[in-house]
Design a protein around this nucleic acid. Structure first.
Lengths: 151, 151
DNA sequence: TATAACCCCGTAGCTTACTACAGAGTCAAG
DNA sequence: CTTGACTCTGTAGTAAGCTACGGGGTTATA
């Protein structure tokens, strides 16, 4: 592996990238965005990371998996290292995110119901598209069911 | 209202926008993207729309509500005016979208479970953040539960 | 007739989270 | 000593779906 001679400890950006499963460019991007601190450099100006950086990157990736945006993660990171932050702060932020997730799920479930009801009612292959309730949904919208059944 | 004199019938872009609840720029954008056909023009070069355009715009907006992208909608519009398209085609495309919706819901539900479990277990205001399971989730990831309970 | 409100076109900017260059320097292995 | 893999910086491009802006012409209303 390519390790600069003057790096008795720590990993290169490539090693950090591979071990965390992201791209090198992503790490540099997080640094530019202030999510990762500028690491120290070797004599040849290569970035040199320690476990702290790997942990912080893990934090970012875990929070991302939980639905937080990078902007929110910036705040979470700041809070996590602030002595005056208590558990209540995270409780609030997480609850807010749970509610946001619930909204998204509800919206998707509504889409799903409308679409799958139409799919079930669709005669399928061979039938003319004039008999397709999916196409009717596109043409008449999601609130046109009553109108259609009145014909 | 501002209607050009030489427009005995049809609506202006602003009227179409208001009646469909989108912005004027959005309609021009859909036209550029080939979702709406270039309408005829008044002598003063104003776009002049008829019911057909309003219907087509409705189709686009309904399909958007159902989770289709503009690219997919372009295809749906084309299919809907193609004589050789049968109900089976829409059945397939809608089923594919339902499955995509299911994936998104599943992913959100996983996030929701991890987060809300941690929220429930979080002591909240007053407790030190070292006791916050939400923060632990960020630090140790979503697969670290077993490890933590082994301490 | 003045003014507000509308319309035209073309281009550029916004959002989020990257991803891809170009052109240069550095490092380990054969 | 060359090759190839790695790293550096800075800038620009991508996706999707708009949204805004500048600089003009048009129309309805008071």
């Amino acid at each position: 592996m390519n390790m600069p001679r003057n790096a008795p400890t720590g990993f290169s950006i490539g090693q950090l990238a591979r071990s965390s499963g992201v791209g090198v460019e992503t790490i540099r991007y997080y640094e530019r965005e202030g999510l990762l601190p500028a690491p120290r450099r070797t004599l040849s100006n290569y970035r040199q990371y320690g476990q702290d950086a790997a942990d912080r990157l893990g934090f970012i990736l875990h929070a991302k998996e939980l639905g937080f945006t990078l902007e929110e993660i910036r705040r979470l990171l700041h809070l996590s290292t602030n002595a005056r932050t208590d558990a209540g702060t995270f409780h609030e932020l997480a609850l807010e995110k749970v509610r946001w997730i619930d909204e998204r799920i509800a919206s998707l479930q509504q889409m799903r119901k409308l679409l799958s009801d139409a799919v079930e009612a669709c005669p399928g292959h061979g039938a003319d598209k004039s008999e397709c309730p999916i196409l009717a949904l596109f043409r008449e919208g999601t609130h046109a069911k009553a109108e259609r059944s009145m014909k």
